[in-house]
Write a protein that binds this DNA or RNA. Sequence first.
DNA 1: AACAGGGGCAACCGCCTAATC
DNA 2: AGATTAGGCGGTTGCCCCTGT
Length: 308
Amino acid sequence: MGRQPCCDKVGLKKGPWTAEEDKKLITFILTNGQCCWRAVPKLAGLLRCGKSCRLRWTNYLRPDLKRGLLSEYEEQMVIDLHAQLGNRWSKIASHLPGRTDNEIKNHWNTHIKKKLKKMGIDPITHKPISTATEEPQPEQQLQHQPEQEQKQHQTSHETDHSTAELDQNKEPETSLQSSSINTETKEEEKSMTSPFDPMELINNLLVDEVPLMEVPHEIIAPSAASSSTSSSSSSSLNSSNLLQGYIDQFQDFEWPCDQYNNNLGCLWDDDLRSWDLLIHDIDGDRKQVVDQCPILVNLEQESNWAYN
DNA sequence: AACAGGGGCAACCGCCTAATC
DNA sequence: AGATTAGGCGGTTGCCCCTGT
């Protein structure tokens, strides 16, 4: 009958992950790849739920993650994407390589919302807040709508306000809008029958300032690429494929830079160090891990490994 | 220097959908 | 076909750190 339970929730650890647990998880994923998360805790020797492991990996440990605050460009992209997609953070995240839905969601709630409000823009509707109706009515109404209704609403809503707000927000903001978006969802594509000319928008892009970020599939390791969008069970990659993916990813990829010469797709600097620490910390396990994981060797040997 | 309050973020919770038996 | 679960997603919570008093 059905599948086996994901985890017996008795005696499982909760709360923040320790460095030791991280090590175990990383070691396991790098040597075995992402298979079924249910099995990961047991095999990796973790007292965690598989779900927790998956979350930790996708939101924090994945080597292709970018760290640190979102750049202005990314922030603008989030705003534009949110205007079209609403709170569909995973969809939004899929357009921002190296960023997770959780990260974007947090950033939205803590930074962007305030910023927009400061600018007099309703973060929900993306329309200018009329001084008369400053109460957060629309937000609450939307949030309290039953989900299905909201979804139905959303498709029409999206079309509505994506067009409406384009009219209204055309002003100062760099309208990246849908031009930069390869919407995978057919429904969305259908629903986004916006009357504006995409080419016009493309032309409006600050192409000189910002590199096109058409790289998600290239820079995201096979495992990671499959994890965010499709079920990770589909990533029946064997470990050699996975590791090869990492190698290719790190060795061949030229990270794009923004106008400030910041690496847009780079690994987090600190984490390179932390990976290194990790390698050296493991010691006992180190040899085994390094032997089985060429990318670690690579990282270890090329201490002056350059992004570009 | 100590405390309080607020902000930021990692992690959890609960629901939904797709997959599996 | 129906039951059951894994994985994915968005919302929420709670802890930690920073800043102001």
